[in-house]
Design a binder for these strands. Sequence first.
DNA 1: ACCTGAACACCGTTCAAGT
DNA 2: ACCTGAACACCGTTCAAGT
Lengths: 223, 223
Amino acid sequence: MTTTTQRSERRADALSKERIVAAAIQILDSGGEKALTFRALAARLATGAGAIYWHVADKNELLAAATDDIIARAMAEAADSEQPRETIRAAALTVFDVIDAHPWVGAQLAEEPWQPAVLRILEGFGGPLTALGVPEKAQFDCATALLNYVSGLAAQYAAAARLQGRETSRTALLANVAARWTALDPAEYPFVHRVAARLADHDDREQFLAGIDLILTGIEAVR
Amino acid sequence: MTTTTQRSERRADALSKERIVAAAIQILDSGGEKALTFRALAARLATGAGAIYWHVADKNELLAAATDDIIARAMAEAADSEQPRETIRAAALTVFDVIDAHPWVGAQLAEEPWQPAVLRILEGFGGPLTALGVPEKAQFDCATALLNYVSGLAAQYAAAARLQGRETSRTALLANVAARWTALDPAEYPFVHRVAARLADHDDREQFLAGIDLILTGIEAVR
DNA sequence: ACCTGAACACCGTTCAAGT
DNA sequence: ACCTGAACACCGTTCAAGT
């Protein structure tokens, strides 16, 4: 009893995994992946770098915890429809919006495919498949196809954020890439040269959803 | 004329971007991403770390060059069919086999979506779409859907290779993950819990192709 | 023009020492 | 039990100095 009392009487701003993760998210959101160092995190928490290791095993665990925090909150709020197809679309759009708002989450999802956050997403894709009429045997392939697609987009967004740094916007970056595509030899890269214009003025969210719909159409054909 | 003569008379093992990239690929293939440092590379080339910077701008350029070297060779050999669907499948399987053999290529493809190697892959997916009857407007979405799916798988393979290190095999790793999935609360993760068995004994290449086929079926429905 | 290798500016992580 | 902060073992990159 004495020890528990002693424990609860510690100063209010004592370190905890939750406080560390919250501070990490703030740093990641404002400065990107590059900004999160143990030194920066310790400075923000007004402590030493080593103190963090008492609550968190290493940087991997810290990033996984930060990612799960954001994904868990978002997936819990994802719209639930009576139509399984709509439920899957809503889950996908939820992940898209999270990645768009926190590109570092995208990097983490792609880099650590077996972390808890990914399981939540996989559950969001796989859960409605039975109601969609997909036979049991095909469900794993269908859910991972959606997951791979989303992971690929996540990686792409993370790369864009890394290139942007702080100065350019995503649209400016894509316009830049599109210009380089247009300058390619049309004989060697006919397709890329031809679709370069679309890269510059497409809507990211609509394009993302178009890909989800392609896969969903393929999935519905499996029934 | 004197200068050009002088240039060609340098010792046969003079540094060049090609030699540097070739050495980098050897290190990456035998030791993984982690093993490629400028110090290790310089040691293998029997030179100083700074010398490499005369031929290569930085580590990004080095990795992009190594990746393009491997992807260009592989894509050039990809089977070309009269049936556009088969051509796309062959391109996808070519990329799969490359990633399977060189997981670090997977990491690089996912991390740098605007590097030359990715353009070759995008060309392989987009080129046959016209013959497949996909309207011009939809081709960009279709090709990038395939690309995102492949990038997601690439990231997943790269992560597996990172976790494996050197001791465990990929199948052992997946069996391990599957065991953790089985141990999950079936109430919270019903789907993941249910498909855990499939993760352990599925065929990676077949599963990959199943996802490609889902997307292709969706694409054919766009016609 | 090309190469050398020490030095710089950073990392993540550890650990003896404190409270 | 929890925190401090210097120290360690690495990185990528730079640059004065050589040939």
